[in-house]
Design a protein around this nucleic acid. Structure first.
Lengths: 158, 158
DNA sequence: CCAAAGAGTACTAAAACCGTCCTGATTTAT
DNA sequence: ATAAATCAGGACGGTTTTAGTACTCTTTGG
């Protein structure tokens, strides 16, 4: 199972919520209340997203955050990379300067590239706005309760 | 960073090694020596692979393992699913009977499907034999030393 | 009948991740 | 000018996940 961390999930929820607000900034505490995610965690996620330029932050008394671009222009690829780092299916494949040990080039180097490319491509086509459109009436708030019932993953071991 | 576990890496290394042996079974200790992976771990991986029918096991004094199919017919998708469980990019998306909480359907349910499909497709096209073909002279043994210098992942946080 | 090998399970140790808190910087309002 | 609200950045502890190991049982060839 290839899995995303909880924080990434939170990021998507928060960004989705942000995209549904009428213009203007929303503070971390506000977003925490609307999404049901604990406030310190929301703050942490937003700080990361601000550092990666996915949201703009406004400091000061009436400060807050707002999306740095339109929801339909923000791909999940960006979001995931912002939170989790570069997307690649192995650790070794990233563009590190001199990643692999001393002598001898890694035989599997580059073999994963097609896979990584496919993942990124699919992720780039999925936009934040796609996550918002929902067929049922559940508010984003429910999303957080509903995501990641981690216990159920255990079923895979059979 | 979407990542594969170490065990999956080991599985690929061991299977690759197995594919390069002339016909006949190889025991876990033999494979451990050839790959440089600790013997108990090799044994563990092989047991998993045998359970998932990717290798055939021969018990008894002269027993061992051999590939259940040709290397060019074995996709990485199979290998990964054997070790890690079903491939999906979120935890929630698996085919669990009643995964999500009580009332209200999960808004993001199904949104990830195109991504998951793309990943699986790419993974199905990559065969075990592709991993074996190497442009340099490094034996598979080196692969294990070379994969996953986990420390380097830290660089991503910047 | 014994030795070698796989099967299955359970346990321990290490690593990653999540969540929280604390301190400092910035801006608005009074 | 001061106070309040808010973001920025880093540090820390606990929980969960994963990796690695050990033990016992079964199978099979000599």
């Amino acid at each position: 199972m290839i899995k995303l961390g909880k924080l990434t999930d939170y990021a998507i929820v928060v960004l989705t919520q942000l995209s549904q607000e009428s213009d203007g900034a929303r503070s971390a505490p506000q977003l925490a209340e609307k999404t049901g995610i604990p406030e310190p965690t929301v703050a942490k996620v937003l700080k990361t997203l601000a550092r990666e330029k996915l949201v703009e932050s406004l400091r000061g008394a009436a400060g807050g955050y707002r999306l740095a671009k339109r929801a339909q222009d923000m791909s999940l690829c960006e979001v995931i990379e912002a939170v989790e780092g570069p997307i690649a299916i192995t650790s070794c494949v990233t563009e590190a300067p001199e990643p692999c040990g001393a002598e001898g080039r890694c035989p599997s180097r580059g073999k994963w590239d097609p896979v990584n490319r496919a993942i990124r491509l699919a992720l780039q086509e999925l936009k934040l706005s796609d996550m918002a459109s929902r067929g049922c009436g559940a508010p984003a708030q429910r999303l957080i309760q509903v995501t990641m019932p981690r216990a159920l993953e255990e079923g895979r071991a059979k």
